[in-house]
Amino acid sequence: MSEISLQVDGKQVTVEEGMTILQAARSVGVAIPTLCDHEKLAPYGACRLCTVEADAHGRTNLIAACQHPVEKDLVIRTRTEQLDRIRKVLLEQMLAHAPDSEQIVALAQIYGADPNRFEKDANFCILCGLCVRYCAEIKQKHAVGFFDRGAKREINFIPEIAVRECWDCKECFPLCPTSALQAAYVLTEALMSPPEPVAKGCGGCGG
């Protein structure tokens, strides 16, 4: 694999081809905020907090650092006034769903996001997909998935699989930046739990 040189916040970085801008930045200690990124999972690009500014081929674009592969001579800026504004709005949008999420609240402080900017939404999930992807990519069980699209998109456990797999796993719980996942699981469990086990032996038939 060949090496690629680029610039991140004024620092010269040389990394292997195929790495992402996020990885390149981290390798020289430049922190870019993320929520849906996970080292064990494929880049996903849902939260968009990692949006950075990139100069390439004579043009300036905004791109997601977690998904964009490094390119020769890219010049990346990870904090600008515009990026701060964008991150602030993104965090405010997420706070409408998950006002108590520690990770989001911590980032909100950095970017000055107002937790009350948007009306609170009943759904806590910010659809980062960590649980869905972990279950699919690492556990290969597909017990939790996305349903519907657009504003109606949500995560749900697939009861038939969840009832078999989840009780002994629950490895996705600590990944969730909000409390939505556990709630969804508890709900599924309630719906799926078999009726109270009947006392051993049935008086009627003597079995």
Binding site: M94, G129, R149, G150, A151, K152
Partner: peptide
């Protein structure tokens, strides 16, 4: 229309359209 037809994967599209529509 876009709020129904966005795939809903990324925050700025799904949530941004939701808030603008409101």
């Amino acid at each position: 229309f876009l709020s129904d037809e966005s795939c809903g994967k990324c925050t700025p599209c799904r949530e941004g359209i939701r808030q603008m529509l409101k």
